[in-house]
Design a protein around this nucleic acid. Structure first.
Lengths: 151, 151
DNA sequence: ATATATTAGTTAGCTATGCTAATTATATCG
DNA sequence: CGATATAATTAGCATAGCTAACTAATATAT
């Protein structure tokens, strides 16, 4: 792969590392994605629900920003969640234009099951690794979380 | 997060490692995904094109399997690529039911630019890390590629 | 105080992407 | 040769992305 002139600045070492890391994460998630279909809801709804479950109630605009979609898109995603009784909406008392979207108990259960299902097959593969490799992956995961806040 | 009874078997160490790794990859790719929109084509077309560019010509069924979608879905994705002159189709001479799908020069260029764009911001963040962290990430990437073939 | 502007969310209408079922064309097998 | 199997497409449905236009509520400025 060719580096752009712009990328020459950041160093060949870092560029190649980023390239490999990118490929590896794409390939890893490609395999896990399939299992999400068992949840019975679409990927956008599942992802939005995960935000509600792990980060708590959100306004529509906040949820749209967290999921990197525009408000009209999130409006329809939330409508789907509400239709499936996985989330519910209430009017914000301080600003009656705004809504507060929360996960229902059903939504929390569905999401946690989906998450376990996703991690299941990965965990089995990880268990087959050497102890030292698992330790290395955990360190890498920590660094990747930091990176994700900067990209 | 709660492990299912099934997961207890694979060990708490591996399960937690897998969970962290899963979160980290999801968060990392979430940030990079946005830049793909600059390519002007949808994510499914971009991903299918990347297979054609890096793995060479493929039949529709092979491409569908590589991308983990059903043939009718891939049929339409390829139609989009052909419409945009990013790929072309030919009849397989040995089996005239089958098609051979290849990337055009335009398709190769577009895909490589998209790939560089994706890796760009990640490379900048990686460049800010310590040398030892970059080495660790490269080792992790290699292990993750192995994992991706097993999940 | 009231007119104006801004903000939160929804609706309408387009494209892309996922599916299953049914169709068409070609290969293969008995 | 006829029956069956296979490769791809077409039709029809749902989800998910966008922009533009709309409604309702809040904030601002005269």
């Amino acid at each position: 792969m060719q580096a752009s002139p712009e990328l020459k600045k950041v160093g060949q070492q870092a560029f190649e590392g980023a390239d490999h890391l990118h490929s590896a994460t794409v390939h890893l998630l490609r395999g896990l994605r399939i299992r999400d279909r068992e949840s019975g809801i679409g990927p956008a709804q599942l992802s939005a629900l995960s935000v509600l479950v792990f980060a708590g109630p959100k306004s529509l605009a906040e949820l749209a920003q967290a999921e990197q979609v525009k408000p009209p898109t999130m409006s329809r995603i939330v409508a789907g969640l509400v239709r499936g009784k996985l989330a519910y909406m209430a009017t914000n008392k301080d600003d009656r234009r705004a809504v507060v979207i929360s996960a229902t108990t059903k939504g929390i259960n569905l999401m946690q099951e989906a998450r376990v299902r996703r991690v299941e097959s990965l965990a089995r593969a990880v268990a087959a690794l050497h102890e030292s490799e698992i330790v290395l992956l955990r360190k890498a995961a920590r660094i990747m979380e930091e990176l994700s806040r900067k990209v």
